[in-house]
Write a protein that binds this DNA or RNA. Structure first.
Lengths: 350, 350
DNA sequence: CTGAAAGCGCTTACAG
DNA sequence: CTGAAAGCGCTTACAG
């Protein structure tokens, strides 16, 4: 039994000047199992390289002593950590939460932890978070905007940290991204409303991030291609809430009472718009059609049920994480965009 | 300029057998500033102990070289990390997300990072996560159940890791907890319904965790004290969704058509119940009153607006983190429970 | 399949 | 206010 292991059993004198932490180390396990520390390390990381008999004795020693590996030491020695830094715009938005669930599920399988940063849709905040996280030597980054990507890629090649961009697809195939086309999704909603015969559709949005702007762009183009003129657009650079949806609908009606449909750039706004219609006795969809975005849990069971764009947000998280870990493992995966697509769920509200 | 710093400027030959990472270290900064590494370390951690002139030269060197501290090395050397492990039951529940926002805000101010674990309301999952996180030598834990607390406290005193329990209050003053009384909140809802004159209130719940059971217990007691008999209780051990609220309401009506009010153990269920009433043409609150729990964003602006219990979930996160950091800093804070209370928001639905 | 030596980049514990 | 030495607990890079 090693000196340190002994400390765990009887209060032996701590050597003068010692910094002993009392922690069980790989050295204690090695002594207990009668092998070298190096073999213990191998038994943990690459068991196939260790003789079965040694492996068994090592595992028994680990159990007996209650050994817990010290990640800080491993990270320092290998210059690689098992931590992935994830940056999302908001933590109060169900969409990103589900993406985090996907990330978590994949990383848990793969044996990684993750740090979550919330950028608040602000670029300087993003940069600050990246600096902070670099100190943790993360193995990789999962990001939700393109600028950060560039920051990481500008590092010297030897120190490059892999990154995958989520939600939106990169413009080129030069980097890794997983998502779907926001523009096409907006376009699809416009075409659907046109086909249903709505003449004066409005667009409302809050939390004006680049993705919202792409949905709007696609929506405009769709209306244009259908020969329809948008009734009105109301955009507010404030956080998205259900109540905000009610407010925006009021503004739409004030500005253009002829409006007969509204594309809400997310389901929170759509729910608020629906409640506002109910409050005013406006029939949905008879007098006003409502379309949302994301298919959050209430969209399908609202009265009336809400037409919305079903987005693959869980999958975006899961597959972004998978793409990142593949890179880390040096697997030969093609660079480029993974387009997971979207679906338009047509329901009662349109 | 040190050997390593030089490497960053010109591709000097890498010594045979070297493990140089190419990273700028505290040694490079020290050389650049003309002080010892120890002084650089002090300038970063305890600037007050370093002469202003040295400090300025050090900061200039840090800027010039682009030094980023290596947390793994710091953690290994000091046996303390700047990471807090947070365990919450679910990441798809807005309640816990807002709690995480509070935690994040306080920890960001205090210079800590955090790892988030999702227990899925399962005890074995909790224990497994604690083991995993212990390998990261977290400075402390923020937990949401009591069992884990005991696991951590059973460690030898010298290696004890501080923990604070969130949401629910501890039974005694022996440990740290921040939350409110779930039982009293349930009680308050019952008394409110009784005062409004409802005769046959039902209770519905999903995701049956201990907190739900306490709300139910309080609700029962409140009805009893008001001399009212509950119409029926429907509990399902499945995840909470809006649609589940609609299903549960249907079951209540099937089992007891006389029911005139329902206490939904959270707002997701309440929203689903409201939609189901609208679908069936059941007047709310005329024929059926609905009360929820948590005051999520839609409760106040639904049609009709939903009576609910306003819970201090952001504050629970913020103040739990504050309590934990106080402990870490060795500040003299009294052990015990911090009761943040709750509020009953009486609205149109009751 | 296994091990001895050196090193990762910090901080501790002294000593001045 | 400052610094030289040792050590935190692992993994790398060899060598067998």
């Amino acid at each position: 039994m090693s000196k340190r292991a002994a400390q765990n059993h009887k209060a032996s004198a701590i050597p003068k000047g010692s910094r002993a932490t009392g922690r069980v180390t790989i050295i204690d396990v090695a002594a207990e199992a009668g092998v070298s520390p190096m073999t213990v390390s191998r038994a943990l990381k690459t068991p196939a390289l260790v003789q079965e008999q040694s492996r068994e004795r090592i595992m028994a020693a680990i159990d007996k002593l209650g050994y817990v590996p010290n990640q800080a030491a491993a990270t320092l020695a290998s210059a690689r950590s098992q931590v992935i830094a994830v940056l999302v715009p908001s933590l109060t938005n169900a969409v990103f939460i589900e993406t985090l669930s996907g990330i978590r599920d994949y990383l848990a399988e793969a044996g990684y932890q993750f740090l979550i940063g919330e950028t608040g849709y602000a670029r300087d905040k993003e940069e600050q978070l990246i600096s902070t996280y670099l100190a943790h030597a993360p193995a990789g980054f999962l990001l939700s905007s393109s600028e950060q990507h560039e920051i990481l890629q500008s590092r010297p090649a030897s120190r490059a940290i892999p990154a995958v961009r989520m939600f939106d697809l990169g413009r080129s195939n030069d980097d890794f991204s997983v998502g779907f086309s926001q523009t096409k999704a907006g376009y699809a909603v416009a075409r659907h409303l046109a086909e249903r015969g709505y003449k004066r559709p409005a667009f409302i949005a809050a939390q004006l991030d680049p993705r919202m702007m792409k949905r709007r762009e696609g929506f405009r183009k769709g209306l244009q291609d259908a020969g329809i003129q948008s009734a009105v657009e109301v955009l507010l650079p404030l956080p998205t809430t259900v109540d905000m949806g009610a407010q925006l609908l009021r503004r739409v009606l004030d500005a253009n009472p002829d409006c007969d449909a509204v594309f809400c750039c997310n389901d929170d706004l759509a729910l608020g718009a629906l409640f506002e219609c109910q409050r005013r006795g406006i029939a949905v969809p008879g007098r006003m059609a409502i379309a949302g975005f994301n298919d959050l849990s209430w969209a399908a069971c609202a009265t009336p049920s809400i037409t919305t764009v079903v987005t693959p947000r869980y999958d975006i998280g899961y597959k972004s994480a998978r793409m990142l870990i593949s890179q880390l493992r040096g697997e030969d995966i093609p660079k480029g965009r993974l387009d997971l697509g979207f679906e338009l769920a047509v329901r009662e509200s349109t």
